[in-house]
Design a protein around this nucleic acid. Structure first.
Ligand SMILES: [Mn+2]
Ligand SMILES: [Mn+2]
Ligand SMILES: [Zn+2]
Ligand SMILES: [Zn+2]
Lengths: 144, 144
DNA sequence: CAACGGGATTAGAACGATTCTAAACTATGA
DNA sequence: TCATAGTTTAGAATCGTTCTAATCCCGTTG
């Protein structure tokens, strides 16, 4: 039961299509290509630019605007989550579960820290009228 | 020993001038004005825009470029620190000590959480070749 | 106190990331 | 196959920020 490259590609396309349908998104050529790249491996962190470069390098024609649209749609559908670590670029994370990050600013690199690893204690109650949405921990690192 | 407004202003100017000198920065009219506003009260969180509006509303003429320059110079001098909570705007904090923040995204509002309040345990060692620079905790809140 | 020299300020252009517009295209269901 | 609403896209626009290069001014010197 050895699979050819073409067979694997077909399976990924099918999986991506199913995932999109399940999320209520039309499985267009562009979305299927992007979903295949994003979810082929686990725990990816991409920017619109990096994903656009990746899909372009794979010989697939998708506009940058569509990459932006798709990243936002995937995020709204719960397939991605946004990670805020840089004041001039948006990162998107294929790991939507509870976890934290190392961030190496000089390279724009994010590394996952599993959710149970870090414990945050003593978060005070927010001021009246406000409710906690989430608690983000970013461990900023540098080359040493 | 009641002080007139003019006397208070003169004292603030003197304090700001001293602070700038101590940081190795020439006390220009613009820097003194900005430092006076920033350090008149404690624990402020500003953006370049908000500070520019504030100084403009006070009737002082300072260009936006100078506000940007000054915020960066003050940060380098250790008078301010940058807070990264938004992927499209930079915030600067007059509290340079160890502390954390509530962030109300819908209003771009930051609220301090004193440094001893939150305890972060279990931060893993970074991958080889990397060293921890700082650990940031952001408690994202919403109206409720 | 006038001149000088280098840092500081500024208007306006440039930039990079992102969003918008509106026209062309396509997935889907009848 | 057709109609329709959703999708894609090139290019323009926007927004926060940085850059450029001309002008200005703080602090020192003579
Ligand atoms: Mn590209
Ligand atoms: Mn303004
Ligand atoms: Zn992650
Ligand atoms: Zn603060």
């Amino acid at each position: 039961m050895v699979k050819t490259l073409r067979e694997s590609a077909k399976e990924m396309t099918a999986a991506a299509t199913a995932r999109l349908r399940h999320a209520g998104l039309r499985p267009t050529r562009q979305r299927v290509e992007l979903a295949s790249l994003l979810f082929k491996t686990c725990d990816r962190h991409v920017t619109a630019e990096s994903l656009h470069d990746e899909v372009s390098d794979a010989g697939v024609k998708v506009s940058l605007a569509t990459v932006y649209n798709t990243l936002h749609q995937f995020t709204q559908a719960g397939l991605l989550r946004q990670v805020i670590v840089d004041s001039s670029r948006s990162y998107f994370d294929t790991n939507t579960g509870d976890h934290q990050h190392f961030f190496l600013e000089s390279e724009g690199m994010l590394i996952d820290i599993p959710g149970e690893t870090i414990a945050v204690a003593g978060v005070p109650a927010p001021p009246p009228g406000l409710a906690v949405d989430r608690v983000d921990v970013v461990v900023r690192v540098r080359r040493s």
